[in-house]
Design a protein around this nucleic acid. Sequence first.
DNA 1: ATGTGTGCAAATGCTTTGCAGTGCT
DNA 2: AGCACTGCAAAGCATTTGCACACAT
Lengths: 142, 142
Amino acid sequence: MDWKEILSQHGYRLSEPRKRIMKLLANTETALGPQQIHQQLQGSNKIGLVSVYRTLDLLLELGLVTVVYDSQHNPGYMLGTIGHHHHIVCQNCSKALEFSGSDDINELVLRVEKETAFKVRDHILQLFGLCPECQKTLPQRA
Amino acid sequence: MDWKEILSQHGYRLSEPRKRIMKLLANTETALGPQQIHQQLQGSNKIGLVSVYRTLDLLLELGLVTVVYDSQHNPGYMLGTIGHHHHIVCQNCSKALEFSGSDDINELVLRVEKETAFKVRDHILQLFGLCPECQKTLPQRA
DNA sequence: ATGTGTGCAAATGCTTTGCAGTGCT
DNA sequence: AGCACTGCAAAGCATTTGCACACAT
Protein backbone atom coordinates (compact mmCIF):
# COMPACT_ATOMS: atom_id res chain seq x y z
CA MET A 1 0.00 0.00 0.00
CA ASP A 2 1.59 3.26 -1.04
CA TRP A 3 1.37 6.60 0.63
CA LYS A 4 -1.41 7.93 -1.56
CA GLU A 5 -3.71 5.15 -0.52
CA ILE A 6 -2.81 5.62 3.11
CA LEU A 7 -3.69 9.28 2.86
CA SER A 8 -7.10 8.69 1.36
CA GLN A 9 -7.87 5.75 3.61
CA HIS A 10 -7.52 8.15 6.51
CA GLY A 11 -9.76 10.68 4.84
CA TYR A 12 -7.04 13.06 3.74
CA ARG A 13 -6.79 14.59 0.31
CA LEU A 14 -4.05 14.28 -2.23
CA SER A 15 -3.00 17.88 -2.62
CA GLU A 16 -0.25 19.41 -4.68
CA PRO A 17 1.95 20.46 -1.72
CA ARG A 18 1.72 16.97 -0.24
CA LYS A 19 2.68 15.39 -3.54
CA ARG A 20 5.65 17.66 -3.96
CA ILE A 21 6.92 17.19 -0.43
CA MET A 22 6.66 13.42 -0.69
CA LYS A 23 8.44 13.46 -4.02
CA LEU A 24 11.23 15.59 -2.64
CA LEU A 25 11.69 13.33 0.37
CA ALA A 26 11.70 10.29 -1.86
CA ASN A 27 14.54 11.76 -3.89
CA THR A 28 16.66 12.95 -0.98
CA GLU A 29 19.08 10.76 0.89
CA THR A 30 19.59 13.13 3.80
CA ALA A 31 17.16 14.19 6.48
CA LEU A 32 15.56 17.56 5.76
CA GLY A 33 14.09 20.16 8.07
CA PRO A 34 10.96 22.20 7.36
CA GLN A 35 12.98 25.23 6.24
CA GLN A 36 15.14 23.20 3.90
CA ILE A 37 12.14 21.52 2.35
CA HIS A 38 10.46 24.84 1.86
CA GLN A 39 13.55 26.26 0.22
CA GLN A 40 13.99 23.30 -2.12
CA LEU A 41 10.42 23.67 -3.27
CA GLN A 42 10.60 27.30 -4.33
CA GLY A 43 11.24 26.47 -7.97
CA SER A 44 8.02 26.16 -10.01
CA ASN A 45 4.92 27.29 -8.17
CA LYS A 46 5.47 28.46 -4.62
CA ILE A 47 4.42 26.50 -1.58
CA GLY A 48 3.89 28.04 1.84
CA LEU A 49 6.22 27.26 4.71
CA VAL A 50 3.17 26.72 6.88
CA SER A 51 2.01 23.94 4.59
CA VAL A 52 5.36 22.26 4.96
CA TYR A 53 4.95 22.21 8.74
CA ARG A 54 1.41 20.95 8.55
CA THR A 55 2.22 18.32 5.96
CA LEU A 56 5.16 17.02 7.94
CA ASP A 57 3.02 16.74 11.06
CA LEU A 58 0.48 14.76 9.10
CA LEU A 59 2.99 12.48 7.44
CA LEU A 60 4.63 11.83 10.79
CA GLU A 61 1.32 10.98 12.36
CA LEU A 62 0.57 8.55 9.55
CA GLY A 63 3.99 7.01 9.95
CA LEU A 64 5.01 7.84 6.39
CA VAL A 65 7.92 9.88 7.60
CA THR A 66 10.51 9.42 10.35
CA VAL A 67 12.59 11.78 12.43
CA VAL A 68 16.33 11.37 11.90
CA TYR A 69 18.96 13.39 13.75
CA ASP A 70 22.00 14.84 12.05
CA SER A 71 25.45 14.64 13.59
CA GLN A 72 24.77 17.71 15.72
CA HIS A 73 21.58 16.08 16.92
CA ASN A 74 19.23 18.38 15.08
CA PRO A 75 16.07 16.63 13.93
CA GLY A 76 15.11 16.23 10.30
CA TYR A 77 12.63 14.18 8.29
CA MET A 78 13.07 11.22 5.99
CA LEU A 79 10.75 8.83 4.25
CA GLY A 80 10.14 5.89 6.55
CA THR A 81 9.61 2.29 5.60
CA ILE A 82 7.20 0.13 7.52
CA GLY A 83 8.44 -1.60 10.63
CA HIS A 84 11.01 -0.63 13.19
CA HIS A 85 14.17 0.72 11.64
CA HIS A 86 17.15 2.82 12.61
CA HIS A 87 19.46 5.09 10.72
CA ILE A 88 23.15 5.60 10.27
CA VAL A 89 24.10 9.14 9.37
CA CYS A 90 27.27 10.47 7.77
CA GLN A 91 28.91 13.11 9.94
CA ASN A 92 30.34 14.78 6.88
CA CYS A 93 27.67 14.80 4.18
CA SER A 94 24.64 13.88 6.32
CA LYS A 95 23.62 11.07 4.01
CA ALA A 96 21.51 8.60 5.96
CA LEU A 97 20.80 4.90 5.46
CA GLU A 98 18.34 2.63 7.16
CA PHE A 99 19.30 -0.54 8.90
CA SER A 100 17.11 -3.01 10.73
CA GLY A 101 18.47 -3.69 14.14
CA SER A 102 15.90 -4.31 16.82
CA ASP A 103 17.04 -7.87 17.39
CA ASP A 104 20.58 -6.89 18.14
CA ILE A 105 19.68 -4.83 21.14
CA ASN A 106 17.38 -7.37 22.72
CA GLU A 107 20.19 -8.68 24.81
CA LEU A 108 21.02 -5.18 25.96
CA VAL A 109 17.39 -4.51 26.78
CA LEU A 110 17.16 -7.61 28.89
CA ARG A 111 20.29 -6.73 30.81
CA VAL A 112 19.12 -3.19 31.49
CA GLU A 113 15.69 -4.38 32.60
CA LYS A 114 17.38 -6.64 35.09
CA GLU A 115 19.77 -3.92 36.27
CA THR A 116 17.28 -1.11 36.60
CA ALA A 117 13.93 -2.85 37.16
CA PHE A 118 12.50 -0.66 34.43
CA LYS A 119 10.16 -2.23 31.87
CA VAL A 120 11.54 -1.29 28.45
CA ARG A 121 8.99 -0.40 25.79
CA ASP A 122 10.75 1.74 23.22
CA HIS A 123 14.10 3.14 22.22
CA ILE A 124 16.05 5.61 20.14
CA LEU A 125 19.09 4.29 18.36
CA GLN A 126 21.11 6.06 15.74
CA LEU A 127 24.62 5.58 14.49
CA PHE A 128 26.95 8.25 13.18
CA GLY A 129 30.07 7.88 11.11
CA LEU A 130 31.44 8.31 7.63
CA CYS A 131 29.82 7.06 4.47
CA PRO A 132 32.03 5.25 1.93
CA GLU A 133 32.43 8.37 -0.23
CA CYS A 134 33.43 10.65 2.62
CA GLN A 135 35.91 8.09 3.93
CA LYS A 136 37.77 8.45 0.65
CA THR A 137 37.47 12.20 0.48
CA LEU A 138 38.47 13.15 4.00
CA PRO A 139 41.98 12.98 5.43
CA GLN A 140 42.48 10.14 7.88
CA ARG A 141 42.22 10.78 11.58
CA ALA A 142 42.71 8.78 14.75
CA MET B 1 37.96 15.61 40.38
CA ASP B 2 34.68 17.36 41.02
CA TRP B 3 32.91 19.92 38.92
CA LYS B 4 34.24 22.92 40.81
CA GLU B 5 37.81 21.97 40.05
CA ILE B 6 36.98 21.34 36.43
CA LEU B 7 35.48 24.80 36.16
CA SER B 8 38.49 26.58 37.61
CA GLN B 9 40.97 24.43 35.74
CA HIS B 10 39.42 25.72 32.56
CA GLY B 11 39.61 29.30 33.80
CA TYR B 12 35.94 29.66 34.66
CA ARG B 13 34.66 31.13 37.89
CA LEU B 14 32.54 29.58 40.55
CA SER B 15 29.53 31.86 40.51
CA GLU B 16 26.31 31.69 42.43
CA PRO B 17 24.07 30.83 39.44
CA ARG B 18 26.42 28.03 38.43
CA LYS B 19 26.39 26.61 41.94
CA ARG B 20 22.64 26.69 42.16
CA ILE B 21 22.11 25.12 38.76
CA MET B 22 24.55 22.32 39.51
CA LYS B 23 22.93 21.72 42.85
CA LEU B 24 19.49 21.55 41.29
CA LEU B 25 20.64 19.11 38.64
CA ALA B 26 22.33 16.98 41.26
CA ASN B 27 19.08 16.70 43.17
CA THR B 28 16.83 16.00 40.21
CA GLU B 29 16.32 12.60 38.72
CA THR B 30 14.62 13.78 35.56
CA ALA B 31 16.07 15.75 32.67
CA LEU B 32 15.26 19.45 32.88
CA GLY B 33 14.99 22.10 30.19
CA PRO B 34 16.25 25.67 30.51
CA GLN B 35 12.79 27.00 31.30
CA GLN B 36 12.15 24.40 33.97
CA ILE B 37 15.49 25.06 35.61
CA HIS B 38 14.80 28.76 35.61
CA GLN B 39 11.43 28.23 37.16
CA GLN B 40 12.72 25.92 39.88
CA LEU B 41 15.29 28.51 40.84
CA GLN B 42 12.91 31.39 41.44
CA GLY B 43 12.75 30.82 45.18
CA SER B 44 15.38 32.73 47.12
CA ASN B 45 17.29 35.26 45.02
CA LYS B 46 16.33 35.39 41.39
CA ILE B 47 18.49 34.09 38.58
CA GLY B 48 18.14 35.19 34.96
CA LEU B 49 16.89 32.84 32.29
CA VAL B 50 19.79 33.97 30.12
CA SER B 51 22.26 32.75 32.70
CA VAL B 52 20.59 29.38 32.67
CA TYR B 53 21.14 29.10 28.94
CA ARG B 54 24.72 30.25 29.16
CA THR B 55 25.51 28.01 32.10
CA LEU B 56 24.03 24.97 30.41
CA ASP B 57 26.07 25.63 27.29
CA LEU B 58 29.19 25.85 29.39
CA LEU B 59 28.45 22.74 31.43
CA LEU B 60 27.71 20.84 28.27
CA GLU B 61 30.95 21.94 26.70
CA LEU B 62 32.86 20.82 29.79
CA GLY B 63 31.05 17.51 29.72
CA LEU B 64 29.57 18.00 33.16
CA VAL B 65 26.08 17.72 31.80
CA THR B 66 24.42 15.47 29.21
CA VAL B 67 21.45 15.81 26.93
CA VAL B 68 18.69 13.32 27.63
CA TYR B 69 15.48 13.09 25.62
CA ASP B 70 12.10 12.61 27.23
CA SER B 71 9.54 10.18 25.85
CA GLN B 72 8.35 12.75 23.33
CA HIS B 73 11.92 13.25 22.23
CA ASN B 74 12.33 16.71 23.68
CA PRO B 75 15.82 17.38 24.91
CA GLY B 76 16.67 18.10 28.54
CA TYR B 77 19.78 18.22 30.70
CA MET B 78 21.09 15.91 33.39
CA LEU B 79 24.28 15.61 35.35
CA GLY B 80 26.66 13.38 33.44
CA THR B 81 29.19 10.99 34.82
CA ILE B 82 32.51 10.51 33.10
CA GLY B 83 32.72 8.03 30.26
CA HIS B 84 30.20 6.95 27.70
CA HIS B 85 26.80 6.27 29.18
CA HIS B 86 23.22 5.99 28.08
CA HIS B 87 19.91 6.63 29.74
CA ILE B 88 16.65 4.87 30.28
CA VAL B 89 13.72 7.21 30.74
CA CYS B 90 10.32 6.55 32.27
CA GLN B 91 7.52 7.34 29.84
CA ASN B 92 5.23 8.19 32.70
CA CYS B 93 7.21 10.18 35.27
CA SER B 94 10.28 11.01 33.16
CA LYS B 95 12.67 9.70 35.76
CA ALA B 96 15.94 8.77 34.09
CA LEU B 97 18.70 6.36 35.02
CA GLU B 98 22.13 5.85 33.55
CA PHE B 99 23.35 2.55 32.28
CA SER B 100 26.67 1.68 30.74
CA GLY B 101 26.17 -0.09 27.50
CA SER B 102 28.71 0.64 24.80
CA ASP B 103 29.98 -2.91 24.74
CA ASP B 104 26.60 -4.37 24.04
CA ILE B 105 26.20 -2.64 20.75
CA ASN B 106 29.64 -3.46 19.42
CA GLU B 107 28.27 -6.47 17.64
CA LEU B 108 25.55 -4.37 16.08
CA VAL B 109 28.07 -1.75 15.01
CA LEU B 110 30.23 -4.35 13.30
CA ARG B 111 27.28 -5.79 11.46
CA VAL B 112 26.10 -2.41 10.25
CA GLU B 113 29.59 -1.40 9.14
CA LYS B 114 29.71 -4.54 7.06
CA GLU B 115 26.23 -3.99 5.65
CA THR B 116 26.53 -0.33 4.82
CA ALA B 117 30.26 0.26 4.33
CA PHE B 118 29.97 3.20 6.69
CA LYS B 119 32.66 3.72 9.31
CA VAL B 120 30.87 4.09 12.65
CA ARG B 121 32.25 6.68 15.06
CA ASP B 122 29.43 7.64 17.41
CA HIS B 123 25.88 6.85 18.35
CA ILE B 124 22.74 7.89 20.18
CA LEU B 125 21.05 5.25 22.25
CA GLN B 126 18.25 5.76 24.71
CA LEU B 127 15.70 3.42 26.16
CA PHE B 128 12.17 4.28 27.20
CA GLY B 129 9.80 2.39 29.42
CA LEU B 130 8.28 2.35 32.87
CA CYS B 131 10.19 2.74 36.11
CA PRO B 132 9.40 0.33 38.95
CA GLU B 133 7.09 2.81 40.69
CA CYS B 134 5.06 3.63 37.61
CA GLN B 135 4.71 -0.05 36.77
CA LYS B 136 2.84 -0.47 40.05
CA THR B 137 0.82 2.69 39.71
CA LEU B 138 -0.38 2.36 36.15
CA PRO B 139 -2.99 -0.06 34.90
CA GLN B 140 -1.55 -2.90 32.88
CA ARG B 141 -1.49 -2.70 29.12
CA ALA B 142 -0.53 -4.95 26.26
C1' DA C 1 -21.47 21.23 -3.63
C1' DT C 2 -18.92 20.56 0.39
C1' DG C 3 -15.56 20.94 3.51
C1' DT C 4 -10.52 19.91 3.64
C1' DG C 5 -6.27 22.13 2.63
C1' DT C 6 -3.61 26.29 1.38
C1' DG C 7 -1.33 30.68 1.78
C1' DC C 8 -0.81 34.92 3.99
C1' DA C 9 -0.19 37.74 8.02
C1' DA C 10 0.10 38.07 12.67
C1' DA C 11 0.93 36.07 17.12
C1' DT C 12 3.68 33.22 20.11
C1' DG C 13 7.57 31.47 22.37
C1' DC C 14 12.16 30.02 22.80
C1' DT C 15 16.92 31.35 22.27
C1' DT C 16 20.58 34.65 21.32
C1' DT C 17 22.91 39.09 21.52
C1' DG C 18 24.50 43.76 23.36
C1' DC C 19 25.72 46.26 27.07
C1' DA C 20 26.43 48.31 31.60
C1' DG C 21 26.93 46.98 36.23
C1' DT C 22 28.42 43.14 39.71
C1' DG C 23 31.34 40.24 42.01
C1' DC C 24 34.88 36.28 41.65
C1' DT C 25 39.81 35.62 42.07
C1' DA D 1 42.17 45.89 40.45
C1' DG D 2 40.95 43.44 36.53
C1' DC D 3 38.11 40.91 33.91
C1' DA D 4 34.74 37.12 33.68
C1' DC D 5 29.82 36.72 34.71
C1' DT D 6 25.23 38.34 35.39
C1' DG D 7 20.85 40.44 34.45
C1' DC D 8 17.98 43.19 31.72
C1' DA D 9 16.08 44.62 27.42
C1' DA D 10 15.86 44.03 22.76
C1' DA D 11 16.66 41.42 18.63
C1' DG D 12 16.24 37.13 16.03
C1' DC D 13 14.12 32.91 14.42
C1' DA D 14 11.40 28.96 14.18
C1' DT D 15 6.84 27.40 14.84
C1' DT D 16 1.84 28.03 15.54
C1' DT D 17 -2.65 30.13 14.86
C1' DG D 18 -6.68 32.61 12.54
C1' DC D 19 -9.01 33.40 8.60
C1' DA D 20 -10.66 33.89 3.80
C1' DC D 21 -10.04 31.68 -0.51
C1' DA D 22 -9.00 27.60 -3.50
C1' DC D 23 -9.44 23.07 -5.01
C1' DA D 24 -9.85 17.82 -4.24
C1' DT D 25 -13.49 14.60 -3.88
